[in-house]
Design a protein around this nucleic acid. Structure first.
Lengths: 216, 216
DNA sequence: TAATCTACTTAACAGTGTTAATCAAATTGG
DNA sequence: CCAATTTGATTAACACTGTTAAGTAGATTA
């Protein structure tokens, strides 16, 4: 690598880095403001003009940092997917027994939904089209988070504690069980209160795991 | 009741009825156009101006027949709830055995979702706030459709084929199971295809009913 | 110092839901 | 039969939205 030699070159490089950094900062500020607004107003009452006003810039400035509104929202959802994936992996790593693992994964899933209703709604109910947008870099696709689940089911079958069968189908069944309750709470919190969700969480997991358990 | 005697009175009454009828017709035409547009464009790409254009009226005319956009959409959802309720009742009435009844109700639920994805989405995922709007007349609340489910569960417990327990909790569990799969399909049809839903329908019902079944 | 480039702004377009003012035609009362 | 009024619809307008194009200070470069 060639080092800058003259002072002028060094200054130029420093200034370029500084500008790069400031650009990154503003991008971050836009996302933070957008995130706050999203949580406060919800996805519908969420406008670029409001985001801009919140950080003291004109609305069109956002277009210098994001292609359009979708790209901004998608960046936020992407971060939520990262958190989601980490929490699921963390839960799975906390215990070895397949059945216990399915339980903690399920609980982690419930907790993510309960703690991030707005993002859950975007990820799984409203903007799941985002799942199928290619990521800019060659990272794993978002949906890879579910490998945690299929792995646990697979391990359970191999250990002989789950009925042999289609791993994908079993995982889908388990997924739809937990998703059903979480999404019902998000859609109609007045009818399905958070308390009801918490009370029924374990029942759902019982039914899910019990339904898949090897019948003696 | 006093009959109109003079010709003038009779004409007046007839004309009044005619105008009433025409008003009803236009209201119906608005709803039909709105329904078609809803199915074609989805809830997001659905505007009053487009509805108006489709029936050859100015956009503001709609406000003479509906308080606002929500009331128009709600009227459509209301009709969907009617169809939903009828289909569930019809299914439940087709068979007496509680377990078999739970099965046919579940299947009817799946079929409604598969046949009416746009309305299902509005009813259970996007505009479920509508559930809690008072109906104009003193009819039963929309949610009454679920009595069909709780009745079947109740009957199952009384017949001794389901584990005794909280009827509401059991019904909720069953509901979230079927809702989970249907709503996943609606949110991400590319990942959860209709075929997958049809293939897993019975598995889900097995797990749901099996999980609630009296353990011997 | 002059030219260029960068970050940002204002102006504008096409669209939305919605309200107020208007207008013609039908209905009514004398 | 004519005047007053009500009815059903319209156009104009407001305040929003996402988005694009043109313009503008200020830093950077040659």
């Amino acid at each position: 690598m060639i080092e800058p030699v003259t002072i002028a070159e060094r200054v130029r490089k420093g200034s370029s880095q500084r500008r790069e950094q400031e650009k990154e900062n503003l991008r971050r500020a836009i996302m933070d403001a957008a995130g706050e607004l999203l949580l406060a107003q919800g996805y519908d009452g969420f406008s670029l003009r409001q985001v801009a006003e919140r950080i003291g810039y004109s609305a069109t400035t956002i277009y210098l940092y994001f292609k359009d509104k979708d790209e901004l929202v998608f960046s936020l959802i992407d971060e939520a997917w990262d958190r989601f994936g980490r929490e699921l992996e963390q839960a799975a790593a906390s215990i070895a027994d397949p059945i216990a693992q399915l339980r903690v994964i399920g609980r982690a899933y419930f907790n993510f939904g309960l703690n991030n209703p707005v993002y859950y709604q975007l990820m799984f109910m409203q903007r799941s089209d985002f799942l199928f947008c290619a990521k800019p870099d060659e990272e794993l696709p978002r949906i890879a988070s579910f490998v945690v689940l299929t792995n646990a089911v697979q391990a359970g079958i191999e250990a002989g504690v789950l009925k042999p069968g289609d791993v994908q189908a079993y995982s889908l069944t388990a997924w739809s069980l937990v998703h059903g309750l979480v999404s019902l709470w998000i859609s109609m919190p007045q009818l399905i209160t958070e308390g009801i969700v918490r009370d029924n969480m374990d029942t759902i997991l019982d039914v899910a795991i019990g339904g898949l358990l090897l019948q003696k």
